[in-house]
Design a protein around this nucleic acid. Structure first.
Length: 310
RNA sequence: CGCGGGGUGGAGCAGCCUGGUAGCUCGUUGGGCUCAUAACCCAAAGGUCAGAGGUUCAAAUCCUCUCCCCGCAA
């Protein structure tokens, strides 16, 4: 088959690599335009684009999805099928109907749960014990298409979104190739999603990282994991911002107001939450790298009774 | 040229504005105390103050350049 691949970030790379090793031919790649990135705001190509360049595959980077400058060359590639992993844009009907065998999407959750842009993060934030990959035939909705294949993957207790994502991405690549093979063989029956079971995993914003100390400690600990490495969980000690990279919850109760530092140990800072306490283990302040609390404490004055938060 | 902060014994920080003896909390080593200890007490070792140049009687501190690190922003 002639395949066009659409994808952008690191998560999409294993899918593309898997396709390149498969029997099918990747005839073109669509990825988002180069964007200013990092300090210095250097224009940076997406991870998918870098692979495409390495392989010498034709690339399209549409700014707008409905213009002929994009649609015409895309049609000229004559794809039998379009494979999409974390592309980051909605595909309109004009594109969805272009390839005879349709558009297949690799999604990082067990659909119909966690539809949307940030399924990996939300699964961790909600303390799920397992998640997975679903491949589906795309339709006009947000991850609402008929499901093709699905495979589960366990979430480790100390997994963060950052450690879980690469495993899911690898699985996504495997499942994508398997899905295409079975589609060709005609052994696959698309299964409609149960919309009643659907939940959403909306795109995370920077502000979602701000810790709300009135939440339960167990939920806060999951949030810290799910928000790592981006956007990162953070709170404030006065005007100083603390990024919290690691924290565990304790069931121990406290009568202190949520956000109050209850006690300071050698390598832990216990903070009162809405229920139970959160034990901070790894902190980062501006201009400094992240460090274990034991090191953080040698250079920062932290005492019981100090309030955290805004 | 997107904005900003930082590089000081092994770790984390103060000192810099207002030049003039290298400081704090830990760690390390030795000793003491103790039934005992990651606890406590005493002592010691350990630093070309990122690098180069400049100003000055004198530079961690002021000026210029270089290298490295980080936050914001994505």
């Amino acid at each position: 088959m002639r395949i066009v691949f659409m994808g952008t970030p690191e998560f999409a790379v294993p899918s593309l690599e898997a396709l390149l090793k498969s029997d099918d031919q990747v005839v073109g790649i669509v990825t988002q335009p180069d964007r200013p990135k990092g300090r210095g705001q250097q224009l940076t190509p997406s991870p998918v684009k870098i692979i495409a360049q390495r392989e010498g595959i034709p690339i399209l980077q549409p700014v707008k999805m409905k213009v002929p400058e994009f649609l015409e060359p895309l049609a000229a590639w004559k794809p039998d099928l379009i494979a999409v992993t974390a592309f980051g844009r909605i595909l309109h009907p004009g594109i969805l109907s272009l390839p005879p065998r349709g558009c297949v999407n690799v999604h990082g959750s067990l659909l119909p749960k966690y539809r949307g842009a940030a399924p990996v993060q939300w699964a961790v934030i909600n303390g799920e014990a397992e998640t997975g990959i679903t491949t589906m035939l795309m339709d006009e909705g947000m991850d609402t298409g008929a499901m093709l294949l699905q495979e589960k993957l366990g979430i480790m207790p100390d997994d963060t979104a950052g450690t879980l994502a690469p495993r899911l991405a690898e699985l996504g690549g495997r499942l994508l190739v398997e899905t295409l093979a079975q589609l060709k063989a005609g052994t696959l029956t698309p299964k409609k999603q149960d919309d009643g079971q659907a939940t959403m995993a909306p795109l995370l914003k920077k502000e979602d990282g701000l810790i709300d100390w009135t939440m339960k400690a167990t939920m806060l600990a999951n949030r810290v994991r799910g928000l790592s490495p981006w956007p990162g969980a953070y709170t404030f000690s006065g005007a100083e911002r603390w990024n919290i990279w690691k924290a565990v919850s304790t069931a121990e109760a406290t009568s202190e107001r949520p956000g109050t530092i209850v006690s300071v140990g050698k390598q832990s800072i216990l903070v009162a939450a809405g229920e139970g306490m959160l034990d901070l283990r790894e902190i980062q302040t501006a201009n400094s790298r992240r460090m274990p609390v034991s090191q953080f404490l040698t250079g920062h004055k932290v005492t019981a009774g100090m309030p955290l938060g805004l």
